[in-house]
Design a protein around this nucleic acid. Structure first.
Length: 340
DNA sequence: AAGCAGATCAACCGCTCAACG
DNA sequence: GCGTTGAGCGGTTGATCTGCT
C-alpha cells in the first residue's frame, strides 16, 4: 500500500508557473510567511497548486537573494571539491554557495560541469603531484623535481603509461598539491561567520541540542549544522547550515570517513573569510569523537571526480554517493590541497 | 524556412526522515 | 512503539531553447 498523495492531483494545476501565480505566492509569503505548512498554503494563497509545488517555486525562484546565471570558477571549484568528498549531496553543496539552490547546482553539474571535467582530464593522464610518484615511476624522464618550482609542477599532468609529465590544460582547476595527513593534535580552529557552524572544541563534543553536535557513538550519527538550518534545496534557503544528519553508513560514508586511516579522515567544509578559503577537516579521534581541523585549501582530485562520474553512470548501486574503495583509498594515500 | 538533435532547466516524482499524537 | 503527516532531498522528466544541416 503506497502513501496517500500529498494533494488531489486532479484539482491542482501543474506545469510552468504563470507570473500571476508567482505574484500571488510571493505576496502571500511576504505577508504571512509559510506558516510552517506548505500543504495548506496554496489554498490560503488562492492558488490551485500542490503545496510541494509552491514550496519548490518559492525556494528555487521566488525567495529573495536567489542567484541565477553563470557559475563562477570559484563556485565550480567548490562544487567539485564537495562532490569529490560527499557525492551528490546537492543540498549540502548548495549550502556552501549562497544564493544557489541545490536544483540549480544539480542541473549545472549534470549538464555542464560534469562534462567540463570529463573533457578536462584525458583518461590516460593522471593529475598527480610529482612527489607522489617520481620515485616509483621513471624519475629520469620527468622534469626533475628541483627543476620544477611548485608553481610549475602544478601545471603538469603525469602520463602514467608513458611516465612523463605533460602540460596541464589551462583551466580553473589547477594547482593541486599534496597535503599532509591531518594532524593528530586536537587544537581548536576558528570558524567564520559565513561558514557552516561546526562546533569546534578541544573537549569531546557533547550533545548540545538536537541538530547540533554529538559525539560519535556506536550508532554514529554525525550531525551538521544548527537549528537555524536553511539550506537550499529543491530547495531550501541559502543560509549556510546543515540540518541533516549524516549517518556513517549513509552513502559509503563510513568508508569515506573512517575506512582508510585508523583515526583520521576528513570531511570538507569550505569557508569564505575575506577571500581566503579554508577547508575544515573532520578527523576522528581514537576515542571516537569527531573534531575538525582547518586547512587553507580546497580539496579534490579530478581523477577521483572522474571515477565518480564514471562509476555513477555505469552503476547506480551507490545511489550516486561517493563510495570509496578502501584499498584504493589506502593505495592512494595522498590528499591534494588547493592552493593559490 | 523547416526539421532535427542536443542542451538546458523548471518542475515533478517518489522516497526518507523527523515530528507529533 | 506505532501510524500519520509534512518537509526535505535527489533523481528524473519533459517543455523549451539553441544551433546545426
Amino acid at each position: 500500500m503506497g502513501r496517500a498523495p500529498c494533494c488531489d492531483k486532479a484539482n491542482v494545476k501543474r506545469g510552468p508557473w504563470s507570473p500571476e501565480e508567482d505574484s500571488k505566492l510571493k505576496d502571500y509569503i511576504e505577508k504571512h510567511g509559510t506558516g510552517g505548512n506548505w500543504i495548506a498554503l496554496p489554498q490560503k494563497a488562492g492558488l490551485k497548486r500542490c503545496g510541494k509545488s509552491c514550496r519548490l517555486r518559492w525556494l528555487n525562484y521566488l525567495r529573495p537573494n536567489i542567484k541565477h546565471g553563470e557559475f563562477s570558477d570559484e563556485e565550480d571549484r567548490i562544487i567539485c571539491s564537495l562532490y569529490a568528498n560527499i557525492g551528490s549531496r546537492w543540498s549540502i553543496i548548495a549550502a556552501q554557495l549562497p544564493g544557489r539552490t541545490d536544483n540549480d547546482i544539480k542541473n549545472y553539474w549534470n549538464t555542464k560541469l560534469k562534462r567540463k571535467l570529463m573533457g578536462l582530464l584525458p583518461s590516460s593522464h593522471q593529475r598527480i603531484a610529482p612527489y607522489q610518484q617520481f620515485s616509483s615511476q621513471n624519475p629520469s624522464s620527468f622534469p626533475s623535481h628541483s627543476s620544477l618550482s611548485s608553481s610549475q609542477y602544478r601545471d603538469y599532468y603525469y602520463n602514467s603509461s608513458h611516465h612523463y609529465y605533460i602540460p596541464a590544460p589551462t583551466s580553473s582547476f589547477t594547482c593541486l598539491e599534496p597535503i599532509s595527513a591531518p594532524s593528530s593534535n586536537y587544537t581548536n580552529t576558528t570558524t567564520t561567520s559565513n561558514s557552516l557552524s561546526f562546533y569546534q572544541h578541544q573537549e569531546p563534543l557533547v550533545s548540545v541540542s538536537p541538530r547540533q553536535y554529538y559525539p560519535i557513538t556506536d550508532s554514529s550519527m554525525l550531525v551538521f549544522g544548527s537549528e537555524t538550518s536553511c539550506s537550499s534545496s529543491d530547495g531550501s534557503c541559502s543560509q549556510v547550515s546543515l540540518g541533516r544528519e549524516i549517518k556513517q553508513e549513509d552513502m559509503g560514508f563510513q568508508n569515506f570517513m573512517f575506512g582508510d586511516h585508523q583515526n583520521m579522515n576528513k570531511f570538507m567544509n569550505i569557508n569564505h573569510d575575506g577571500g581566503e578559503e579554508y577547508v575544515n577537516q573532520w578527523t576522528q579521534r581514537p576515542n571516537g569523537y569527531i573534531f575538525q581541523t582547518q586547512q587553507t585549501a580546497l580539496d579534490y582530485d579530478l581523477e577521483v571526480i572522474k571515477n565518480l562520474i564514471c562509476s555513477n553512470s555505469s552503476s547506480n548501486s551507490n545511489n550516486g554517493y561517493l563510495s570509496v574503495d578502501e584499498n584504493k583509498t589506502e593505495e592512494k594515500g595522498v590528499y591534494y590541497n588547493y592552493c593559490n
